[in-house]
Amino acid sequence: MGEVEVASEELLRHFGPLSYEEIGFLLNKMAALLDKRGMNITIRKKVYAAMVESLENIYKHQDHISDDVAYLPKFSLLVNAQSLSLFISNSILNHKVNLLKSKLDKVNSLDKDGLKDLYKNTILSGNVSPKGGAGLGIINIAKVSENKINYTFTAINDKYSYFTLNVLISLNNTK
């Protein structure tokens, strides 16, 4: 049987800089929407974790973003019969692109046990940066997603690029 194109419904969308309170607002709204659709606690917690880590990452790095309105932070959450899909976009300094790409390739190359080991090694060895990042966010997103993180990077100019991460959370393989 061939692949069937599945229509997705957009549940949540945010465009522009984020405050800490707005992150809380989006999280509460997501939890209520998924609860209303009867999604179980494991799914809700997975989406919650993926949203927190990605939105807090945008929040922590928004002093470095490009001021071009086309490249402001974006977030959306979509659902179809098979999965929940998060799209997270933000601008990034060009010299940081390779580091982020290599982190994404690393987590995408690992299975569940490999991710657990990477999380363990990072948390036991890494220092928490002054902004509170512990280098754990992407690993955590990959752990809860249990799917590969799709990504794109597009050059904006000689200083910035714009990236989009797509995180999938399957609906049919959780308890």
Binding site: Y48, E53, E56, L124, G126, V128, G133, A134, L136
Partner: peptide, 12 residues
Amino acid sequence: TYFNSASSKFIL
């Protein structure tokens, strides 16, 4: 009920 990854470092 929930803790983010930065908090997990400190709980540890």
